[in-house]
Structures are given as C-alpha cells and as structure tokens.
C-alpha cells in the first residue's frame, strides 16, 4: 500500500513539475516536487526504505531528463537515508522543522550532484548557488503549505469520524 501511494505521489510530483514548466518555462522547475515527496515518505520509513525511495526518485529524474543514470540516484539515496536518520533522532511533527527539512534536502541534493560532477568530470559546469537557494526556499514554502493543508484535512476527517453517530439497527430499530 505504501509503495502504491509512493508511486502515485511520484506521478503527481512530476505532473506538477510539468504543469509549472509549461506555465512558466524558465522558472517553473524552481520548485522541487520530488524532494517534497522524498521527505514526506522518508520521515516515516527506515533508513534503507528511505534510501530506496530517494534512489528511485533520483533514477526517475535521470530517466526522464536523459541524464547520466545514477547521478541524481546517488543524491536521492543519500538524501533519503539522511532524512530518515534525522527523523529517527528528531520529531518532525512541527511544521517549521519539516519545512526546514524540505529546504535542507534540496540543498543537500544540489551539493551531492555538484560534488559528483566535480569528482567525475574534467570540466564540470559551475553550480548556481542562487538557483539552489531559490529552489530550497520555494520548495520549503510549497512543502510547508502542503503539509499544513494535509494536516487540516486529517484533523477534520478525524473529528468527523469521532462525532459521527453509528447507524446500527437492531431488528428495524435504530440503536
């Protein structure tokens, strides 16, 4: 069930990415939706599970963008493992902490990708710190708003279920 939800979240994340890129071609990819999915799933998973989630998100990115396979895979694997480990140490119930985690995950992945390129390529393209910062802030904001919205929906649903009267009938009479 978790895998199915993850697959659905990945499709939604890339759908949102494609919609934004279509609407705002030059700035649309500033919000890193896959990282939001990664953090949300990694915080409730084991280190290995989160690494696998991160790795598959990275590979999806590499496969779609025609990039070198494993470049974002490694970044995603590391980011997932670190997120899960951090979630085991600190509780991410507070929205502010979770929002910070979105931003940190974006920057962390950018740093890993830049380091790998420096390690593997003789003349790597220079990383763009401004873009990374902008991406971290916007992803954190969108992720934060999404988590708050999700919590509100969950709270309402729980309240509705609590106050809902059970409709059990015994021999045609309402209990």
């Amino acid at each position: 069930m978790k895998l199915l939800r993850f697959a659905l979240a990945v499709v939604l994340a890339y759908g949102a990415h494609m919609l934004l890129v279509r609407l705002f071609p030059s700035t649309g990819s500033v919000i890193n939706f896959p990282t939001i999915v990664l953090v949300l799933f990694a915080r409730k998973s084991s280190v290995l599970g989160a690494a696998l989630f991160g790795g598959s998100l990275g590979w999806a990115n590499d496969a779609l963008a025609g990039s070198l396979y494993g470049l974002h895979g490694i970044a995603g694997t590391l980011a997932g493992a670190v997120c899960a480990r951090a979630a085991q140490q600190v509780s991410f119930r507070q929205p502010a902490l979770l929002t910070t985690m979105f931003a940190v995950a974006v920057v962390f992945q950018e740093v890993v990708v830049a380091s790998l390129m420096r390690l593997l390529f003789p003349d790597p393209p220079a990383p763009d710190p401004m873009w990374a910062l902008l991406s971290a802030v916007s992803t954190a904001l969108v992720g934060g708003v999404f988590v708050l919205g999700l919590r509100r929906v969950e709270t309402r649903w729980r309240r509705y279920r609590r106050v809902r009267r059970p409709k059990i009938r015994f021999q045609g009479r309402r209990a």
């Binding site: 280190v47 790795g55 396979y69 470049l71 895979g73 490694i74 590391l78 593997l120 390529f121």
Partner: peptide, 18 residues
Amino acid sequence: ILVAALLLGQLIFLAAQI
C-alpha cells in the same frame, strides 16, 4: 551496509557511463 552497497553500486555504474 546495504545503503552503502546501494551507493557504491550506483557510483560504479555512473563511472562506467562516463
């Protein structure tokens, strides 16, 4: 250990492509 193996495998694969 498994995460490290996962990373190492990907790194070797990446290097092979380059």
